[in-house]
Design a protein around this nucleic acid. Structure first.
Lengths: 205, 205, 205, 205
DNA sequence: TATGAATGAGATTTCATTCAT
DNA sequence: AATGAATGAAATCTCATTCAT
């Protein structure tokens, strides 16, 4: 088996082909999901050949993992920037801003995250990566929730928080429910702030 | 194409086989997801033959749709029983109880709901069913939220609520995050009650 | 293997079922051709069950052979009645009348004859039956052509005659060419009479 | 569905494989008929793999249509060359020569034409193609018959002519009746010439 | 570095026939 | 004499991956 070009020195042409394959892979996994994606679709979109694909990746799963790793890194980095939870309008605004960034990131990578659910069934590296991401995300959020709400179990609250944030983005980004994304954003910010900081809901103004 | 027995008169033996196939289908879709499920796995689990399967269903998709329809009905029925949102311990308890029922239902059917996400990619009847379910669920919850929280957009709040409830069940049922299901249940009940009814968080006792 | 009821004593009910199966078989073979016909179609049309079918016939081929035998008998009988070939209007009219009977018979059984072509590929009894029919038909016609046209090879002329008659019926009965069946009938009568008896073509009036 | 290579640029190797598949298809359809032909037989004869077949054709029907189209073109071209119908030995010889060419073409493609009858049952493109061929053939011959025999309906005469010619070739080529092909050829030429041009049958010398 | 033809394992589906009742 | 569920062999088709150039 010829070794993958990944990790080797690539000249300009090679770098461009790699970029095209990654773009195509992201697009097709997003559109079709993991299983329904055929290598054929990816190479067609990347305007290259089957043989060439296997020069860059060891297979479909390898491509997916590569893309998933990037996604995982972006999500983990965002988790690190979750703001301190403080009562009052400033605290609420910080959460709203962070949620907006999450929503933007989700619009870009969310489909890949969902394809993950599918890919998880196989006991490949992808599944482990997905679990690791979820765990890392939970830990980081829990660390920020703990000081703000001493009477909540931080781990539990973090799970609930992620659930709320992720799914509300899912519903709005995929348009499966007819609801204004910005309105949902505000509502979630309210819910999170009120739910964790426990304060009176701020004036709707 | 020889017609499917579905909808015809079946004798006892036929009804038993149909039941075995449905049970097997639910199990395998749950275990493997839609795409990774092979008709082969289903018939093996149902202890019947390949040919017989096609006497009952026109194919994999038909089986999935049949199962999905059952799930959709159960979920819609549950949505109708969402309790009135009132402040105070009684209101909170009602929510907690409803959440417990949701969690139980999710444990039974959730995997199928998730397989839906996968199957949705194809523009089959399944996708439409999924969309219809989400819409119906949102509408019913919104109708119950509206009177309780006049300053919230009920549709938006419903989306957020579903998001929170569904994903938190997902995380706990699948065990992807290490968190106690009951603790999460309580936390979510708190979040929902506090977030919507706006009240002071009750004593943890 | 339970023996076929064919050839046994059948009571009234049995005779009716047999008749229904034969009718259904003729219809479906005609409509779909031999290979495309499924036992399923036949039993559905005969409003009986799979199991019952095999009580009357040993299989699809047996049903076909039974039907084909009837057709072969009717055709052979008709060949025996081919009129003496004599010049003049009476001879021509005799041929026209015989052709009309052939056309009628073809309308009823022709499709089965054509299904034969398909079934012939297998080296079953059906193929032999088809060959035997063709040979018998040729022989009988040749015997009538010989005295009328001493300068023609009767066997050859018979082949040409059958060819003309059978295909012209085919084209008109199936409607594949837009032509009036009666007009074709007259034209073929003319062609045959003129071609074999060598006479001057009669007045079109 | 991955697209068929048909109509794309093929390199030398691809062109060779395509040619092998077409040759094999023609041979097997001829030998077995449409329904009894298995893709398996075709690829075995073409010494290639199952998967490769589907790179060139979308399925059995696609292969058949491709072959049928070629046949239809050859037949239509031949119809265009049907000679003017004139009395006398020259006219008769011209017909005989054309018949000889028809017989040769039929020996090559006839089996495919017959497989057509089978394939026609399905309402695919093949059926339409067959109808179109028959219609085109009729029209072209009718256009040549009209001036030669003003008292015949040209369309009707054309149908009778095709009937005679096609079936007599069928009987001789397939050998279903024991008759010398050349003798049949001469007899048909006689019949056609006498029948249409109406003249006295020429000396058998 | 690239191409695209080729492969083959495996998935889906069909259908003549048999079996249990 | 009848039913209809069940079987299993065989056919069609898909697609990740490899190979020859």
């Amino acid at each position: 088996m010829p070794p993958t070009v990944q990790g080797r020195a690539l000249n300009v042409r090679g770098r461009r082909t790699l970029a095209r394959l990654l773009e195509a892979g992201a697009a097709v996994f997003t559109e079709r999901g993991y299983h329904a994606t055929r290598v054929d679709d990816v190479v067609a979109r990347a305007r290259t050949s089957h043989g060439n694909f296997y020069l860059y990746f060891s297979g479909k799963e390898d491509l997916f993992e590569t893309l998933a790793r990037t996604t995982a890194e972006a999500m983990t980095a965002l988790a690190d920037e979750f703001p301190p939870l403080v009562p009052g309008p400033d605290g609420r605004r910080a959460i709203r801003d962070w949620l907006a960034r999450f929503q933007a990131l989700y619009a870009e990578h969310g489909a890949l995250l969902r394809a993950w659910t599918e890919a998880e069934v196989s006991d490949s590296g992808v599944g482990r990566l997905g679990g690791a991401l979820a765990a890392a995300f939970t830990d980081r959020l829990a660390a920020r929730i703990a000081p703000a709400a001493p009477d909540l179990d931080p781990r539990t609250a973090a799970v609930a928080l992620i659930a709320l944030v992720e799914r509300s983005c899912y519903y709005t980004v995929t348009g499966v429910t007819r609801a204004d994304p910005d309105a949902v954003l505000e509502a979630v910010a309210d819910g999170v702030h009120t739910g964790i900081c426990g304060g009176i809901r701020p004036d709707p103004a």
